[in-house]
Simulated assay, not measured.
Amino acid sequence: MDRPGFTASLVAGGVAGVCVDLILFPLDTIKTRLQSPQGFNKAGGFRGIYAGVPSAAIGSFPNAAAFFITYEYVKWFLHTDSSSYLMPVKHMLAASAGEVVACLIRVPSEVVKQRAQVSASSGTFHIFSNILCQEGIQGLYRGYKSTVLREIPFSLVQFPLWESLKALWSWKQDHVVDSWQSAVCGAFAGGFAAAVTTPLDVAKTRIMLAKAGSSPASGNVLSALHGVWRTRGLSGLFAGVFPRMAAISLGGFIFLGAYDQTRSFLLELGRESP
Rank of each mutant, 00 (worst) to 15 (best):
A120D: 12
L93K: 13
S155I: 11
Y85Q: 11
Y144W: 07
H126L: 01
L78S: 05
A97S: 05
Q173C: 05
F159W: 04
I127R: 12
T198F: 03
S179G: 00
S182F: 08
E99Y: 13
A97T: 10
L156P: 00
C133R: 15
A187K: 04
P153V: 09
F128M: 08
S83D: 09
V118E: 04
L86F: 13
R150G: 09
G98Y: 06
S121R: 14
F192T: 09
A189P: 09
A97V: 09
G186Y: 00
F154G: 01
S119V: 08
F154K: 04
G139I: 06
Q117G: 08
T147D: 06
C185T: 09
A194M: 12
S129K: 15
F128H: 10
A187Y: 08
F154H: 02
F125A: 12
W171Q: 14
R150A: 08
C103T: 01
G98I: 05
A102P: 11
G123E: 07
A167V: 09
A183I: 10
H126C: 09
A195D: 04
S119R: 15
F159M: 08
E151R: 04
S155P: 05
S182G: 02
L165S: 11
A167W: 15
E163A: 02
V196M: 04
S164A: 11
S179V: 00
V176S: 12
V107P: 11
